[in-house]
C-alpha cells in the first residue's frame, strides 16, 4: 500500500475516535455539529487518498468520470417527481461493475458535482459520504466472483435480486439516514430524542419513494449496465484485477 494511503487510513482511523472523544470530553456550544462534520470529512479522506495513491490510469479516470456524469445527469435530467431518480442505481452499478474503491469515488463525486446544479449547502459532505458508502458497499458485496467475471451471473446464481434488494435498503437506510442527519444538525440546535425522531419520521415518505425509485431503476438497468462495463473490461482491458 502506498505510504500516503496508509497515512490517510491512520489519520482517519485514529482521527475519528479522537474527534469523538474530544467532543465528549470538552463539550462546547454545538460541539456535536463540529464533531459530526469532522467525522464525515475524515471518513471520506482514506477513500480519496486511495484513489490518489494508486495513480489511476487514463482509462480508469475516464470511466469513473463517465459513470459519475451519468449518475449526475440521471439526477439532474430525469423526469417526474423529485425523489424518483436513477442516481443511486447508477452509483450502485458502478460499484458492482468497477469495484468498491471506484464505487466510492463515483458515489462521492456524484454527490459533490450534482450540487453544482442543485446548490451546495451544509448537506454536501453528508450526501457525498452517503452516495460513496452505497457505491463502496455495492462493490464489497457484488463485485467479487461471478459478477466481476460474467456480469450478473446466470439463472439461480443471478445477483440481480440481491442487488435490487441491497439498493432498496441502502437508499432508505444509508442515504436516508445520513442525509436526514444533516437536517438534524441544521434544525435541532439542541439534541433531544423526540426532535431527532420527528425529523427522521418526516423524512420517511421521501426516503421510501427514493428507495422505490432505486429498486425500479435497478430492475430496469442492472443487466444492461453491468453487461456494458463487462464488455469494456474485456475489449479494452480496463479494470483488470490488480
Amino acid at each position: 500500500m502506498n505510504p500516503w494511503v496508509r497515512l490517510a487510513w491512520v489519520l482517519s482511523l485514529t482521527g475519528i475516535p479522537l474527534v469523538l472523544l474530544l467532543g465528549v470530553l470538552f463539550p462546547f456550544e454545538r460541539s456535536y455539529y463540529f464533531v459530526a462534520f469532522a467525522v464525515i470529512l475524515l471518513a471520506i479522506v482514506p477513500f480519496f487518498a486511495a484513489f490518489e495513491g494508486r495513480k489511476p490510469a487514463a482509462r480508469e479516470v475516464v470511466i469513473i468520470a463517465v459513470m459519475t456524469a451519468i449518475a449526475v445527469t440521471g439526477r439532474a435530467a430525469f423526469f417526474m417527481v423529485p425523489q424518483f431518480k436513477p442516481g443511486v442505481a447508477v452509483v450502485i452499478l458502478a460499484g458492482v461493475g468497477l469495484g468498491r474503491e471506484s464505487g466510492f469515488v463515483v458515489g462521492a463525486l456524484t454527490g459533490f458535482v450534482s450540487n453544482f446544479i442543485f446548490g451546495h449547502g451544509p448537506w454536501t459532505p453528508w450526501q457525498m459520504f452517503a452516495y460513496g458508502l452505497i457505491g463502496f458497499l455495492a462493490g464489497v458485496f457484488f463485485s467479487r466472483g461471478a459478477a466481476e467475471r460474467n456480469g450478473l451471473g446466470r439463472g439461480s446464481r443471478s445477483y440481480k435480486p440481491w442487488i435490487i434488494g441491497y439498493g432498496t435498503v441502502a437508499t432508505f437506510v444509508i442515504y436516508g439516514l445520513l442525509v436526514d442527519t444533516a437536517s438534524v444538525m441544521m434544525w435541532a440546535s439542541e439534541f433531544t430524542w423526540p426532535a431527532i425522531f420527528a425529523i427522521y419520521l418526516s423524512g420517511v415518505p421521501f426516503n421510501a419513494l427514493h428507495a422505490f425509485a432505486s429498486a425500479v431503476f435497478l430492475t430496469l438497468l442492472s443487466t444492461l449496465i453491468v453487461e456494458k462495463l463487462t464488455r469494456l473490461k474485456t475489449r479494452y482491458g480496463m479494470f483488470q484485477p490488480r
Binding site: R59, I63, V66, I70, M80, F84, L221
Partner: peptide, 29 residues
C-alpha cells in the same frame, strides 16, 4: 412505469454511447 422504462432506455443508450466514446477520451489523454 412506461415512462420510467423509457427513461431507463434513454439512460442505457447514453451509457453505451458514453462508454464507447470514452475510449477516445482516454486515448486523447
Amino acid at each position: 412505469y412506461a415512462r420510467a422504462r423509457h427513461g431507463a432506455a434513454v439512460l442505457s443508450i447514453m451509457l453505451t454511447w458514453a462508454l464507447e466514446n470514452a475510449v477516445d477520451t482516454s486515448d486523447s489523454m
